[in-house]
Design a protein around this nucleic acid. Sequence first.
DNA 1: GATGAATGAGTATTCATTCAT
DNA 2: CATGAATGAATACTCATTCAT
Lengths: 196, 196, 196, 196
Amino acid sequence: MSPKTSKQFGKIRKEKKELIMKASLELFAANGFHATSISQIAKKAGISKGLTYNYFESKKEILDELIAHGFDSIFQNFDMNKDGVLSDQEFIHFIKQNFKLLRENLKHWKLFYSLMLQPQITDTFSKDYDEKIAPMFQVLSNFIKAQGSNDPDGDLMAISAMLEGAFLYCVVTPDIFPIEVMEEKIINASFKIING
Amino acid sequence: MSPKTSKQFGKIRKEKKELIMKASLELFAANGFHATSISQIAKKAGISKGLTYNYFESKKEILDELIAHGFDSIFQNFDMNKDGVLSDQEFIHFIKQNFKLLRENLKHWKLFYSLMLQPQITDTFSKDYDEKIAPMFQVLSNFIKAQGSNDPDGDLMAISAMLEGAFLYCVVTPDIFPIEVMEEKIINASFKIING
Amino acid sequence: MSPKTSKQFGKIRKEKKELIMKASLELFAANGFHATSISQIAKKAGISKGLTYNYFESKKEILDELIAHGFDSIFQNFDMNKDGVLSDQEFIHFIKQNFKLLRENLKHWKLFYSLMLQPQITDTFSKDYDEKIAPMFQVLSNFIKAQGSNDPDGDLMAISAMLEGAFLYCVVTPDIFPIEVMEEKIINASFKIING
Amino acid sequence: MSPKTSKQFGKIRKEKKELIMKASLELFAANGFHATSISQIAKKAGISKGLTYNYFESKKEILDELIAHGFDSIFQNFDMNKDGVLSDQEFIHFIKQNFKLLRENLKHWKLFYSLMLQPQITDTFSKDYDEKIAPMFQVLSNFIKAQGSNDPDGDLMAISAMLEGAFLYCVVTPDIFPIEVMEEKIINASFKIING
DNA sequence: GATGAATGAGTATTCATTCAT
DNA sequence: CATGAATGAATACTCATTCAT
């Protein structure tokens, strides 16, 4: 007879919101933002269209929260040794860690890549992304220099491109490129580039 | 008032069609397929909405022809030495040739990349792309083996990823990464990987 | 923990209901019936949406009760001398009394006027309004005749229109037309019309 | 076989636009702006919902054009003797002219009155209305002063209110108040007020 | 009595596509 | 070949109302 406590309501809100975001992420990643309708999201989440708007102001806001949340879940484990110098073993672990995060957030990465190619959707996104990814470059740069490369900038460019391309392959054709093998080859190639 | 010859008509048709495709490519590359309307295309091409349907069955068909045409213009210059073996100089030229094609067709590439990430748009596209790109892999593979690499498959993977990533950088942030420099570094890194 | 008496409950009910009606009146008067949502009303009244339906069957019913209640609060002080004859002083007092009621119920009047112009909202409203307002006409009519007007019906028409227009001005542009001045001029003009 | 000329298209556009505005005016006047849906407008105009947007950017734009057009059709015949002085006959004619315009544009007036009471709909509207109506006050003011009234400002106030109220009666209950009679009584009363 | 999550029908608006001329 | 008026289905979003707790 008593009304629900605000704690109960909070729990419901949290769970339902996650449900909607999960459904949205899958659809956005699979079909793109524009091609995904609120109806589809609601259907996939098993709720009514109207309820979506009890939790999000707009379709765009779902995307924004998804991006913010994606960033967090990807980059929260990403802060070791940012400014220091990595040993060979630590570098290897660093790359493996990145691939691990990729594997665990494949859909987020797919979403990010597709947003990159349609920058008008989220103008703020690019900036955030650049800021978040910059430390990664810094780690790489430090390592390359510490290894005594004779062209640190060039090597950084090549290795970054290689990583980006490897990620893209994993995202687009995860079943063709075995991520574990890719991972190992990328690590080996990195050392060859630096020490070559 | 002399009636136009069918040859003249053919020429007009061809030119109008190219006009529409040019407008579409720019809009699709800039804003994405879904976010681009037939009205925008017609306006940009300087024709009426209705006329568009005189040349294309649907919006989707414009995209399909754009993809097909993009493939052609990219890969038509891509058939030298497919099955043979490249010298170092020829390999360098081959990579440079690829970057040249990229530079000249930046919008097509942007479109391709965004389509890659939304495969449902053109299911046939992926297959075509794979078929078209396969010879490139073959050329790379041949070269790597001829260079005496001790892990040809691994090196191919790494170099492919590096190229793909380099292309992606050039497409997404053409003003940040100077393509010419990128080109040189990629070539150098390739040799290091193979010979390292 | 003693259970509330039914009397206490009744008091709570009454107060909550008045709270809702007060909030509704302000919003309806300011923004119109259609442009006002139950959410807004509930928020303004500091209660939940659902509770509104514990006191009113529907949004429409709030309006209906508001109208009924508005009539009451306006016309309850309005029954002196209905059938009798007014002296000059009493007539003046009568007009002043009307302006006083107007001033005290400006929002009700604004609501009434806007409803008048959208009769479909409350079909019953017009009839009620006519019935309620009829005695006022009667008082005016009696006074005009007693004053020896040579065109009682015409004068009634003119004075009624003048009062209605004055009320409208006061409702729509209360800051432009000083009600007190308006009041005085209307009274003077009435005598001029009757005695002219 | 030949395409429609731009002249033909212009004619179609003009006629269709008027059709939509006519339907909209009737519905807005009868039911109010908010309570009228685009579906209703399209249905009444005998066209599809979509076509409405070929002619108007939004529902609000229909209202705006309706207001602008209403002003024009009401006030275009309204510029005689604005700054001069009216004889008795000219004053009578002036009032009659106003009632004539009212009769011919009853729906526009109804719309205007209902907008007045929901000022948030068109903030610009009030200002325009005030500017347009000001000359009318000027004409009245000039006449009253020329007649030698001993309280010109007060008389202007009373007469303005009387006119406004008369208009409101005509708009709201056109079948109860015979406009012609009203007209005559208003004129008489005006003279009584001024000369009283 | 009180809450706010949930629903579903409704609203304005967009847009690919058709068609008469 | 060329036009743009016209359609209708789809889309994002709103809101009165219900209901489990």
